Amino acid sequence: MTFKLIINGKTLKGETTTEAVDAATAEKVFKQYFNDNGIDGEWTYDDATKTFTITE
């Protein structure tokens, strides 16, 4: 399955996707992406659209 990440950061904005077997696996991938890029904020997940959103 394809999961999308929408980034609404102070310095970084955009979208990316990842292929994962489930939302929990995608969450781990995206959290690592947050850490690697110094993004910290509030994030949500919409199961209907398989979209994670992080807002700094």
Rank of each mutant, 00 (worst) to 15 (best):
T18Y: 11
E42L: 11
F30T: 00
E19R: 10
N35Q: 13
V21H: 11
E19F: 15
L5R: 00
T18S: 04
E27K: 07
V21P: 14
N35W: 12
G41E: 03
E19Q: 14
W43Q: 01
G41N: 06
E27A: 09
E19K: 12
G38L: 11
T16K: 14
K13T: 08
G14E: 13
I54S: 03
W43C: 07
K13N: 12
Y45K: 00
D47M: 07
F34E: 10
M1W: 12
M1P: 08
D40F: 14
K4Y: 11
F52C: 02
W43P: 02
E15G: 03
F3Y: 12
E56L: 13
A48F: 09
E56F: 09
Q32F: 06
T53V: 06
T51A: 02
E15F: 08
N8Q: 09
G14P: 05
D36T: 09
K31L: 10
T16F: 15
K28W: 09
A23C: 08
A48Y: 09
I7P: 00
D47Y: 05
T51M: 02
K31I: 12
N37I: 15
T49P: 00
L12N: 10
I6Y: 04
K13Q: 10
T44G: 06
T25A: 14
D22E: 02
F34P: 01
W43E: 00
K13V: 11
E42W: 12
D36A: 11
K13I: 11
L5A: 09
K10T: 14
K50W: 05
A26F: 02
T49C: 03
K31A: 06
N8E: 07
E27Y: 15
T49S: 09
E19C: 11
D36S: 09
Q32P: 01
T44L: 06
K28L: 12
I54R: 02
T2V: 13
K4F: 10
I6S: 03
D47G: 07
G41K: 04
K4A: 04
D40G: 08
A24E: 11
I39V: 08
E42G: 04
T44W: 08
T18N: 04
E15R: 03
D22K: 01
I7W: 11
I39N: 05
V21F: 11
N37G: 08
E15W: 10
V21T: 10
V21N: 13
F30P: 00
K13F: 10
T2K: 08
G14H: 14
W43Y: 04
T55C: 04
G38D: 10
F34S: 15
N37M: 15
L5H: 00
A23H: 07
D47L: 04
V21E: 10
L12V: 12
K10L: 15
K31S: 06
E56Y: 08
Q32D: 10
T17G: 03
L5M: 06
F34H: 04
I7E: 01
E27G: 05
W43S: 01
V21D: 08
N37T: 14
K10Y: 11
T16R: 15
N35P: 04
A24P: 08
F30W: 05
E56R: 03
E42M: 11
T25I: 07
D46W: 02
K10I: 15
Q32H: 09
G14F: 15
K28P: 02
K10C: 13
K10P: 12
E19H: 14
T17M: 10
N35S: 13
G38F: 14
G9K: 11
G9N: 07
T44D: 07
T25W: 07
D46Y: 02
N35V: 14
E42C: 07
V29S: 07
N8A: 06
K28T: 08
M1C: 08
T53P: 00
G38P: 13
M1E: 10
I54K: 02
Y33D: 04
D47H: 09
N35G: 11
K10V: 15
K50P: 00
G41M: 10
G38R: 12
V29W: 10
A20K: 02
T55N: 09
D46T: 03
D46L: 02
L12W: 14
M1G: 10
E19T: 14
T51G: 00
T17R: 05
V29I: 13
A23N: 03
E27W: 13
Y45S: 00
T18G: 02
A23P: 07
G41W: 15
T51W: 01
T25F: 08
L12A: 08
K28Y: 08
D47F: 07
T51V: 05
I54L: 12
I54E: 00
T2R: 06
W43K: 00
G38H: 14
F3S: 01
L5P: 01
A24L: 10
D40N: 12
D36F: 09
N8D: 11
G41L: 07
F3R: 00
K50D: 02
A48N: 08
A24Y: 09
T2C: 11
I54H: 06
